[in-house]
Every structure is written in structure tokens, then in C-alpha cells.
Write a protein that binds this DNA or RNA. Sequence first.
DNA 1: CGAATTGCGGCATCGAGTGCAATAAGGATT
DNA 2: AATCCTTATTGCACTCGATGCCGCAATTCG
Lengths: 209, 209
Amino acid sequence: MLVNAGQTRGRRPTTDHAAIERAAFRLFAERGFEETTVDAIAEAAGIARRTLFRYYPSKNDIPWGRFEAGLAHLREFLRAMPHDIPVWRAVHRAVLDFNRLDEAAVPQHRERMRLLLTTPALQAHSALKYAAWRRVIAEYVAVRRGLSPDDLLPRTVGHVSLGMALSAYEQWLDSEDLSLSELLDSALSGLRLYLCEDHDGRHPAAGGG
Amino acid sequence: MLVNAGQTRGRRPTTDHAAIERAAFRLFAERGFEETTVDAIAEAAGIARRTLFRYYPSKNDIPWGRFEAGLAHLREFLRAMPHDIPVWRAVHRAVLDFNRLDEAAVPQHRERMRLLLTTPALQAHSALKYAAWRRVIAEYVAVRRGLSPDDLLPRTVGHVSLGMALSAYEQWLDSEDLSLSELLDSALSGLRLYLCEDHDGRHPAAGGG
DNA sequence: CGAATTGCGGCATCGAGTGCAATAAGGATT
DNA sequence: AATCCTTATTGCACTCGATGCCGCAATTCG
């Protein structure tokens, strides 16, 4: 959609994703997501309903913003990762990078994630977005291990990495005073300890975090 | 809905969940999920469209069958688990039990899961079901660790356990010749090895599976 | 029989999403 | 400037899932 950014031919667009998103988020904040109709968003953005659907395939996609671009960046980050560190560590660094935030962007991102993680319709829709994210992780693990992205381990790592990220996000929304990076680190180290507990309930030292 | 099973007052039901499910699955197999309208299912089941929605809150809920009952069983299984085994092991046993299958039920369950895991609308809707499943796991971990189900570790374990189960299921649908239990075991042991790889890429022995 | 209870189903309505075709708004060409 | 080409916007009709409302059907109980 932005490939034709320098385009000079034909009628010029009267709006863009950012403008629609602004209008939408304002309404979502006022009335809630489910209570906001597509017609209302279109009217607030000053465009026709039909036009809105040309910018976003569905109402559920509006809060997701430019997720695809983030995926491309994640893929690139992983490709550039040195091969002499353990796969789990490379994946974790990539997850941290993917969820890095400018201080200024925090409130907006918080509101976006609150919407995505607490609205049932969006919780459901997000599963489709998450699948693409997991796939990026699985492809990296597959390369590092000489497997197919459809094999068990790559898929498992995709699911598990996503799971840690989501629990960190849920905690981040609940808490207020913890940073996302800290929570992602805690989720990983917590899981490592959890999975290493031996039969007698003792926790062996698990180095690195 | 089945609480009033022994009821004798009033008009008797003309159908039940099983009959609707049979009609629906037949149509899903013939034409696919998205291509099957609710009207078609109602007609095939010999009831009115409006009646169907009294049995199932949505079309997406039909393939899920009696999931709530399974959750109650999972909760009970975990409660009965001895406290002298590591939490991760107790959770893993519960996951195995939750996904245990009679040999005879395999083809039907396969078809159900194929539908749930490959149909976009159902992949999305399933996220809402999964949340309840994760909650059961999180509550168990919370009890064992003296935490709240809303704390980071219980939530993480919920997400991660679900992730392992889903990757095992995806593999199960792809493969054909591997049992679900084997795949669940492999997912767990694979993850333990993955997370224990040290900085030099060596795999220390990780006992137990 | 009549009253109370419970399930069924028709009807109207809403909201998301889609296909199609008309129209508006620019630049390029002659 | 008139015309053509290209691209974006928009209106319209339609499908489908979902819901509220209300009357009807069937059954038991007094």
C-alpha cells in the first residue's frame, strides 16, 4: 500500500492509515470497541464506509496498525543474529527488540495492547496475527537447527516464545510500574527455573538470564 | 443446559447438541466450514435457525462440543495430583490426561481438531476457549507456588503449556503415524533441551522426560 | 379442563463484510 | 485545452451471523 508512495499518477488518496487509526482509537476510548460501529469510524475519519474497508480488511485489523512491518524487522533482526549464541538466547533478544519501546510511545502502546488483550473480538482475531509472528520464530529455529519450520521443535518454540511474550504483556498491563523488558526477562528466567525443578522439588542453579 | 435432564415439565426438546453436531460436521466435511451457512445446518438438523442459536451461542462454538466438561475434569485431575512431584511434571501429566483418546474416538477427534486448527474463523474463536484452559493451569501453578493466578509465572506456564499442546496437535495432524501422547512428551523434552543449551552451544544432560 | 411451564420458531433488525459499477481527481499526451 | 489513462472514492445491493421480541406448541399438574 505504501509501495506507491512516490506515485504521481491518478487521484491522490484523501486519507491514510494513521488518520483512520486516530479517529478509530478516539472512538474506542470513548465508547469501547464493540460499541463503535464501522460507520461511526468512517464518519469520524471523513471517509465512506466502503473506503475504510479498502484501507483495513476488517474492523478488527484497525488496532493492529503496521504489524506486518514489525514482522519484517523481526525476521531481519534474527537473520543478523550471530550463530555462536544459543538459539533460545537469540530468540529472546529478538523478542526483546520486537517489543522495545520509546519512552514517548509507551502510553499509546499501552492503550493499544489493552484493547487487543481485553476485547474478546480482538483476542480472537489476534490469534491470526500471532500465527504469522510464530512462523517467523519457527523459521529461525528451523534454520539454526537444520529442521523444517513445520517440525515439532520450531513450532513449539514459536508457541512458547509467544506465550511468554503474552504473559509478560498481561502482567505489564496489570502492574504499571514494571517495564516490558524486565517482564520478558522474568518470564524467561521463571520458565527456565520452572522446567528445571527436579524430582525432589529442589531448584538447581540455572545460569544466565 | 443439561442440568434439567430429568425435567418432566413443559414441552420436550425436539433435538440435542449431539444431533446438531452430527448434522453440522457432515456439512462441514462436504462443503467446508465457511461455506456452510447457519441456515443450512439448522435445516439439516431439522430445526429452526433461531432454535440452533439457543443450543449454541455461535456457529463457531459448534465444533467445540463439550469443552467445558473437559475443563472441569482437568481441574479435578490437577487437584488430585500429589504435591511431592515437581509442578511442571504434574501439569504435564494433566495435559496428557486431558488429551487422552480412546482408539475408537481418534478419527472423529482428528477431524474436529483439523477443523479447529485450520479454519481461520475457528483459529480465531478458539483463542477464547484457550483462555479458559490456560486459567485452569495457572490456578494450579498458583496454588502450588503460593501465588496469584494473575502473577507472571502461573500465566506463563498456562501460555507455555498451551503452546506445547498446540504444536503437538499441529504435528499430530501433519504426521498421521505419531500418537498425541508421544508428541506431547517430545514437545516437553524438546523444550527442556532447548532452554538448557548453554552459551557454547553444548547440550548438558537434562534428566527425566 | 385450565393454568403454569418449557421449548420452538417466525419476524424484524443490526452490524460486518463484499462485489460491482459509477464517479471524482489527478497527470500525461497530443 | 481537450482527451486519455490511471488511481481513489463512493454508493448500492446483497449475504451472513447474531439478537430481541413475541406468539405458538406441547406437556404436566391441580
